[in-house]
Amino acid sequence: MSSNSVSGKRELRPHVPRNFTRVIVICLVLLGLCAAASLVLGSRLVGIHELLDGLFRQDVDSYGANVVRKRISRTVFSLMCGGALGVSGALMQSVTRNPIADPSILGVNTGASLFVVCGIAFLNISTANEYIWLALAGAAITAVFVFGVGSVGRGGATPIKLVLAGAATTAALSSLVTAIMIPRSYVMDQFRFWQVGSVGSASWSAIATFVPFLIIGVLIAIITAPALNALALGDEVATGQGVRTGTLRLIAALAGVLLCGAATALAGPIGFIGLLSTHVIRLILGPDLRFVIPMSAISGAIILTISDILGRLLGSPGELEVGVVTAFIGAPILIILAMKSKVRSL
């Protein structure tokens, strides 16, 4: 496929939004503050000296320093997963031209969950590498199925048809997950902690496994952003600019599934991050995906990290899983967006 068919025949110089510099500075500052807060806050509050010991003095073996070291991998993993889910949400909204498209709403998370629980029940999987490949397969198959069902009939894949197809698929796959788990207590014990969605069990090996998928998915998203802008104007306009719309949709959707599937495999099915982060950025910067995609990554990382911190504080001395927190935040916002936008296409 030629470069023109991905990025568009006539690439115009990006029109930088007036407030872009201010927004990116604010977001980067918030990102740094969230990372620092994630290291300090939790069931055990860490002081500044303990924080510095944990970050820079490996010879110090105090309890506080060890808590900080444990939280470093958790914070890095949270930022990476949030960024991946943010970019995945932006891609799925663009490919489907659906303003409320999100991996969790379109059933992709549930498809990944079904394949993971099948792997636990029938293949005895237990490692991050095994989770990732099964979750990616489940996410990809579910995405194709939902888009196919939503495309049937007059008008093709309209926003409301895709949401309904995703909701029906999610309900059906959730029932299958439950049917597999109920007679197998060992599967339920292993799966239930993953199913809630958490970044608490993050390890450096899991992060190393996740990094290649994150890099590939984000690079594809950035490369396809100009062509996705053309696609937002309609298939006819995009075709006139040299964009192969079918190929573009396939590549962008695969990148979204890659990011979502890898994050879901390691952190569990965390919902609403892609929806929230992309909507916030679109409201502030406008629809240009050359800016929306990278900023959705930053805002997604911020939202997920804040949710993780809230879960630790609200559940103290225990912990409220991040998937529960994002559901509490995201569900009301989704209802408001659906009511205000009346499910209009992008």
Rank of each mutant, 00 (worst) to 15 (best):
L275W: 04
V108R: 09
P159R: 03
L31N: 02
G64Y: 10
I141A: 14
I333N: 02
R192E: 10
L214V: 02
I298A: 07
A297P: 02
A140G: 07
G166P: 06
I303T: 08
S185D: 15
I273K: 03
I120H: 00
C34A: 15
T326R: 10
M1R: 04
D288C: 00
L320F: 13
P183R: 10
G82Y: 05
P17C: 11
G42A: 05
A171Y: 07
R57K: 07
T239R: 14
T96S: 15
N109H: 14
I329D: 05
M181D: 05
A232Q: 14
A128I: 03
S345G: 15
Y63T: 02
G323P: 02
L123T: 00
I220H: 01
F122V: 05
S62I: 06
A252R: 09
V60N: 03
V76K: 01
I273T: 03
T209E: 08
L231A: 12
F147M: 15
R344I: 06
T169L: 06
I72W: 11
A143S: 10
I273L: 03
A157L: 14
T278F: 07
A84R: 05
G318W: 00
D102C: 08
G274D: 13
L41Y: 11
G197A: 06
I335L: 15
I180W: 01
S78D: 04
G217K: 09
S175Y: 09
A171T: 07
S78I: 04
V292P: 13
L219D: 00
C34R: 04
G148E: 05
V16G: 07
P183E: 08
K342G: 09
I220N: 03
V95M: 14
A101H: 11
G42W: 11
L304Y: 03
G119W: 02
H15F: 06
L41V: 13
G300E: 08
W133S: 10
R249W: 12
R13I: 14
I120Y: 08
Y63V: 11
L55V: 09
G234D: 05
N124A: 11
S7T: 13
L283T: 12
G148L: 05
I329K: 05
S201A: 14
G138Y: 01
G138R: 03
A179F: 11
L254V: 04
C118Y: 00
A165W: 03
F291M: 05
S316R: 13
V243K: 09
R69H: 09
A171D: 01
A65F: 12
L106N: 10
L173D: 01
L164D: 00
A252T: 09
S299H: 02
V343K: 05
G271Y: 07
